[in-house]
Design a protein around this nucleic acid. Structure first.
Lengths: 191, 191
DNA sequence: ACATTCAATGAACGTTTATTCAATGTTGTT
DNA sequence: AACAACATTGAATAAACGTTCATTGAATGT
């Protein structure tokens, strides 16, 4: 009941871990089942004992991303500018201390922006928009006087682009120095 | 001597244009010769009359990127902060007015960061580092008092990440609003 | 001890992909 | 008008890829 099932779950996690690494480095099409199998150290055939298809493996990662780190970005009645300071701080901390979660951000970005993902992934991500909710919080901060004037959606794009770009650089080159979160939140800061 | 050669050059440019579009949307492996041939409106076999291989086509684009927009980012004795203001302004203008050049930035980023590109491309790009020269200019600005304190390389990463992320969002979704360059240069600005 | 379930492999299959090539139409040159 | 050079096609090829499957060996439950 449990011994084998625990082993199976561990093995699944190994596959997800190596899959995540390879998918963010080489993209969906650029990553082969063979690549992943080699990284885990198993035969290609055995991969299909744990995941029915390459698409399902990728889908499992994206689902984990939706339920995990992305969902924990709730403003929770915070003062708008504080929300962005906390968010930036939190994500940069992930990058330094929890590479897996940082890489999850990259996968979500890839799944959202690349046309090189299965249709099922696009479906799962439809209606998953990070810019609009952020733009609303920015709008509050503008009425507040804590966030600078300008198109809230454009400010939202600038903020998340910087976060995403830093995450990408750092997750792929762990030797590079990490920017401070205050530099990035200054994109939004009213003077 | 010229009539046919001109036609051939035009056709080559068509292929490069559609190739650029597809490569930045779907990556190197995710883009097939058939995709490009369909987009241009020619047979798959004919593609090989214009480019010897998919690799050479991609390589031609990256070469164009190296000689073109990337090379025109010279400080030219400008005051450091002015250099970044001009650079950000220039690139955001490209995004709005010259989509092809904007997309070239994305391709260079992809070629630099993705493991899903031929080895020949990596060779061509080896020793092509945008961060180090930028970090030097930042260092000057710090002694100057115009750029905030902090690791110059980390500041460089933050600046280029924001630029790159905005370029990606805008080049792929032309309906989205464009951030102002001053928001991004405020990443560097001393208070 | 035995039967059953599961983990694991490697070969086989059909498809897709990049690439080649022989054949055919088209265009510029003389 | 005729010829040579080029443009274009569609079929052929070989490798790589995702996926299936029969088979083997080990672990589990009875």
């Amino acid at each position: 009941m449990t011994i084998r099932e625990d082993q199976k779950e561990k093995r699944r996690q190994e596959i997800l871990f190596e899959g995540l690494n390879l998918f963010i480095q080489k993209g969906y099409s650029g990553t082969t089942i063979k690549d992943i199998a080699n990284a885990v150290g198993m035969s290609v055939g055995l991969m299909f004992h744990y995941f029915a298809s390459k698409e399902e493996l990728y889908l499992a990662l994206v689902s984990q991303g939706i339920e995990g780190p992305m969902n924990s970005l709730q403003p929770m009645g915070l003062e708008p500018m504080k929300f962005f300071e906390m968010t930036a701080e939190r994500i940069l901390n992930y990058i330094k201390t929890q590479p897996f979660i940082a890489k999850m951000f990259l996968l979500m970005h890839q799944a959202h922006f690349s046309a090189d993902v299965p249709a099922s992934v696009k479906e799962l991500l439809s209606g998953f928009d990070i810019y609009s909710p952020t733009a609303e919080i920015i709008h509050l901060g503008q009425k507040n006087g804590t966030i600078r004037q300008g198109d809230p959606l454009a400010l939202s794009i600038a903020f998340w682009s910087a976060i995403q770009g830093v995450a990408e650089t750092l997750a792929l080159h762990s030797d590079m120095p990490c920017p401070e979160s205050a530099w990035i939140t200054d994109i939004l800061q009213a003077k």
